[in-house]
Design a binder for these strands. Structure first.
Lengths: 136, 136
DNA sequence: CTGGATCCTAAAAGATACTG
DNA sequence: CAGTATCTTTTAGGATCCAG
């Protein structure tokens, strides 16, 4: 449906193949751990208060529609992979605070960029989607 | 099991609450579309050849263990949201090339940063995970 | 070669109830 | 408050077959 037939020039096999190359395997590993919606949203929230800690309940309130269970699972996974630190206070009522580790902190610039990108471009995405759906 | 009892100072409710604030809703929308493993991996590959297009089969080869179906689904989604452009050539054999749209291109710096972060930090993550598992 | 259409299973995630 | 445990529903995703 696009441009049909008269192509500019078929890419050679070498041109098409050559890309990412090495490291692809690590990418897969890392993305399996960090590359999901909830993980990114939780990290975005923690990155939004760089030097600060956040309580479990505060995170739950800030991260849109996350369930208690998924927040727990996500935080456990982030802790396991060394990206967040969990501070447990045996008080009444119980209090637990989370903060980014140094490793997690190294992701902050990227998270802020991403957050900014979303704010700046989500409307374009929405428009593109609506137009694409009209054409279909 | 961490520091117990003697806390530094409980965060006030206001400190804990104040974060991300607005835009949270858009984040959720956007991440529902882009925030999954395959989407990020495909974008990483397309970003690795900034000015270039990639054929379906080339993408399939480069993106670790993606199945034909998931690559198709992912590409359709990216096209629908205006991040990639699909070029269809009615030849024999059929040829289809994908490239980043301008909108998709605006994500390249972030994707490159992320890719670099993975290369630089995946070992730290691995170490943290192993140590965490030993302690458990 | 690049998919579309189906079927099917395993994993993810929501809801709910309970506890230190 | 911050979980855990359990149950159920939903979704992701692989396998397979077919087609322009």
């Amino acid at each position: 449906m696009s441009e049909q037939s008269i192509s500019p020039r078929p890419l050679t096999k070498d041109e098409t193949v050559r890309a990412g190359a090495a490291g692809s395997c690590n990418q897969h590993e890392v993305l399996t751990r960090l590359g999901d919606k909830w993980t990114i949203m939780v990290m975005l929230q923690l990155a939004a208060v760089p030097g600060q800690r956040m309580r479990f309940s505060a995170l739950k309130r800030k991260v849109a529609g996350i369930s208690q269970r998924m927040l727990t699972v996500t935080l456990r996974m982030l802790e396991r992979n060394g990206l967040v630190i969990r501070h447990y206070f045996a008080e009444v009522p119980l209090r637990v605070e989370y903060e980014l580790s140094p490793l997690g902190h190294s992701l902050v610039p990227m998270l802020e960029n991403f957050s900014a990108w979303i704010a700046a471009n989500w409307q374009d995405m929405e428009d593109a989607r609506l137009q694409h759906d009209r054409e279909a």
